[in-house]
Design a protein around this nucleic acid. Structure first.
Lengths: 115, 115
DNA sequence: AAGAATACTTCACCTGTTGAAGTACTTCCA
DNA sequence: TGGAAGTACTTCAACAGGTGAAGTATTCTT
């Protein structure tokens, strides 16, 4: 796994929750959104994406249902739950904390006496 | 593993390299520095720390030697190599990229047409 | 008709983190 | 003097999340 992917690890769930806050969606489309937002620099591997859905559903953060039979392949839609929204808030706060921790830890000129 | 620890995963090596850029050091002290910089919010588990040293040394990013026999328990000192410095630069660039990717991916108001 | 795109599933494997247990020495303090 | 706490490192088994690979099935494009 590359450095980048390793940093992303564990944020998969939060990324998915963020996109579901805009409305119900399905795997393939969510992944396209991720790619669009990152200008193609990042996208989920299929296995990553679908195991994340399973995990999120087991934790009660999302719910799923099969889409109407239209043209094209069948789609499983996901929608975020109230608990999922709460989890999203917490995860984003955690991210902000971790982000500043890492910024401090990667600073080669950090003053150790600073408080 | 908590969200925070999961985001930190894979950045262990870069944290250690950052601290070694200030001069040679040893495990216990490096960990204290991490705790100081994060105001006690983060520190390595011993197993994490020492497996990271092993990994870094195997990759040629650090070198190690036993400290002089003084008072107190024996210490294994580490010093960063030229290759380690190059790796550090790369990792920090990767971190900056990933940080903005995640900031974009966690934005619930992101405009999908933006580009 | 072929190939690309859409869409999802499952499995075995890999990597980094961790809990737990152990070794060994020194300092503090009652 | 003796026990707890602090310093310092080691090893191992277990766990979680990500990934490559292979498969299924449909539709769109050329």
């Amino acid at each position: 796994m590359s450095m980048t992917a390793d940093t992303l690890r564990g944020n998969t769930d939060t990324i998915i929750l963020t996109l579901l806050m805009r409305g119900d969606s399905y795997g393939y489309e969510i992944n396209k959104s991720v790619q669009r937002r990152t200008k193609g620099e990042y996208g989920f591997k299929e296995a990553t994406l679908y195991t994340a859905f399973k995990r999120l559903e087991q934790n009660g953060f999302i719910r799923s249902y099969w889409g109407e039979d239209g043209p094209g392949a069948r789609r499983r839609y996901y929608s975020i739950t109230e608990e999922g929204r709460r989890q999203w808030e917490e995860n984003v706060r955690d991210w902000e904390t971790t982000r500043s921790l890492l910024d401090a830890l990667f600073d080669p000129d950090y003053d150790d006496e600073e408080g």
